[in-house]
Design a protein around this nucleic acid. Structure first.
Length: 270
DNA sequence: CGCCAGGACGCCC
DNA sequence: GGGCGTCATGGC
């Protein structure tokens, strides 16, 4: 990744990033596409940091109205710019299926998101579709001045008080997540450092958190790249291409492989 | 109208 | 310990 500052913007070069593939791929739900022509543009935020970012052609980006210090202290980390995805993809490509998946969706990067936001978001995601997930999260943040509420801000919510979200049967799960985290019964920053199976078991103490949601929180919210969320699509990938198990060489970054494979299998299914 | 959406739970055997 | 109906809501 290369960058330079120009007026109020930061101009970035990074061949292994595509905004559509990274911001609209189901790992994060609060980015909105506001322009979709040659200069595709997304707006969204991470914590209290608002960002509007454009992609110009391949691998060129404008981080609008961004200071160098904001870019360095927030966005380099969020976009995982210090990780060499080209190298990861080269390793993956010794496997035939993974090679095709990297070819198809090579612009995906794993965003380093907030664990609490991911926990709530992926509880909402269960048996749901992406437009509706976004709508529910939108209504949630809308109540808090456009910001994602903290556990403390959500403490005391009930199924009834969350009715405006129209999250259906998931409301009771959200309440339990709020209770667990705001009371300290569940400590997300501790979980982030636990061995993977221990961390999964701890997250699953929350009602509505099963194996898939737990792995999503670990992967997207705690950057545990060995976590490998298995949904209906990945299940098909495993049955079709890896009947004898997923390749060992990819296990350390299995979650990143999962992202490439997810989009690849969906593209050939349609 | 029925079917599905990046699942999890409760209950069954 | 695997199999299956059910769970809200909305788009098609």
């Amino acid at each position: 990744m290369d960058y330079n500052v120009k007026n109020n913007d930061v101009i970035v070069s990074e061949p292994d990033l595509d905004l559509d593939e990274t911001l609209d791929c189901g790992q994060a739900f609060r980015w909105k596409k506001i322009k979709s022509d040659f200069e595709k543009t997304y707006t969204g935020c991470f914590f209290n940091n608002q960002l509007t970012v454009s992609q110009i052609g391949k691998g060129r980006f404008i981080f609008h109205d961004t200071t160098e210090s904001d870019f360095v202290s927030t966005w380099i980390d969020y976009f995982d710019f210090n990780t060499d995805y080209g190298e990861i993809k080269r390793q993956f490509s010794q496997d035939e299926t993974l090679a095709k998946a990297c070819q198809f969706a090579g612009g995906i990067r794993l965003l380093r998101q907030n664990s609490w936001e991911c926990l709530i978001s992926f509880i909402i995601s269960q048996n749901n579709n992406i437009p509706r997930i976004k709508g529910i999260i939108d209504r949630l943040c809308g109540k808090f001045d456009g910001r994602f509420p903290t556990p403390e801000q959500m403490a005391g919510e009930t199924v009834e008080s969350l009715e405006y979200l129209r999250s259906g049967f998931r409301a009771k799960y959200l309440c339990d997540a709020v209770d667990c985290v705001s009371s300290g019964k569940i400590n997300l920053s501790d979980i982030a450092r636990m061995p993977i199976s221990e961390a999964q078991a701890e997250l699953r103490k929350i009602k509505g958190v099963g194996p898939k949601v737990a792995d999503c929180v670990l992967l997207f919210g705690m950057h545990r790249t060995e976590a490998f969320p298995i949904d209906v699509w990945i299940k098909r990938v495993l049955e079709k291409y890896y009947p004898n198990g997923f390749p060992e060489f990819a296990s350390e970054n299995a979650g990143i492989a999962q992202q490439y494979l997810f989009h690849y299998i969906r593209s050939i299914a349609e």
